[in-house]
Computed example of a mutant assay.
Amino acid sequence: MELAFVPLRRADFALLSRWLTAPLVSRWWAEPADLESIEREYGPRVDGTDLAPTWIVHLEGRPVAMIQWYRYSDEPEYLAEVGQFLPVPDNAVSIDYLIGAESAVGRGVGPAMIDQLVRLQWEREPDTGDAVVPVHADNRRSWRALEKAGFEHLTDAELDPDNPVDDRRHRIMVRRRPPR
């Protein structure tokens, strides 16, 4: 599967707004999707003042998904919350992702983009550790994509949900960084 990771640009904000309002995305990614909110959240990433690299994923030349990578050390409150259930080293990372194009759902894009990004970022950032990704227990598509990308379910946790309609049940998925 030919995937390309293109750094997020402001020109992508309208597309991201449409994706965030799509039913399959908005169910799990409950954040404002108006352009002003997207500018507030993602503008600093485009400008390089937020340290979470974010990409639009292209499949065969078409934008189909978004994925972002961040270090737990840049998110101390989240590190403390997740760290109650699993030791999370300072050099651990996490990812967030969504498939916005319905035509890409069910085609293996999720596992492929997760796997490719993790391997690519470990190569680019050799000081990073394991990838630790909490996922709501009911979001089966998401945690199955992680499993297919080499993650394992290490523990369950009670964490604040991304969507306020959800309870706190999460699965913490981990992909161990191979020894260097």
Rank of each mutant, 00 (worst) to 15 (best):
D12F: 07
D12M: 10
F13V: 11
L15M: 09
L15F: 12
L16H: 05
S17P: 00
L20Y: 07
A22K: 06
A22T: 09
L24E: 14
R27M: 10
R27K: 11
W28V: 01
W29H: 12
W29R: 09
A30V: 12
A30F: 12
A30L: 07
E31V: 14
P32R: 04
P32A: 08
D34E: 07
I38C: 05
E39S: 01
E39K: 10
E39P: 05
R40S: 14
G43E: 12
D47F: 08
G48R: 04
D50L: 07
D50Q: 10
D50R: 13
L51W: 13
A52L: 06
T54H: 06
T54A: 04
T54Q: 11
W55F: 15
W55M: 03
V57E: 00
H58A: 09
H58P: 04
H58Q: 12
R62K: 13
P63K: 07
V64G: 03
A65N: 02
I67W: 02
W69G: 04
W69D: 04
Y72I: 02
E77C: 07
E77Q: 14
Y78R: 14
Y78H: 14
L79D: 05
L79Q: 15
A80M: 07
A80Q: 13
P87M: 08
A92R: 01
V93H: 03
I95F: 11
A101G: 09
E102M: 09
S103K: 07
S103W: 02
A104I: 01
R107C: 13
G108H: 01
G108D: 06
V109N: 01
A112F: 07
A112H: 11
D115P: 03
D115E: 15
V118M: 00
R119Y: 07
R119I: 13
R119V: 13
E123D: 15
E123P: 02
E125Q: 15
E125T: 11
D127Y: 07
T128K: 12
V132H: 12
V133H: 10
H136Q: 02
A137G: 04
E147F: 03
K148L: 05
F151H: 03
E152C: 12
L154E: 15
T155V: 09
E158S: 14
E158R: 15
D162I: 14
N163H: 09
N163Y: 08
P164A: 02
V165C: 13
D167R: 11
D167S: 13
R168D: 15
R169H: 08
M173N: 04
V174N: 06
P179D: 14
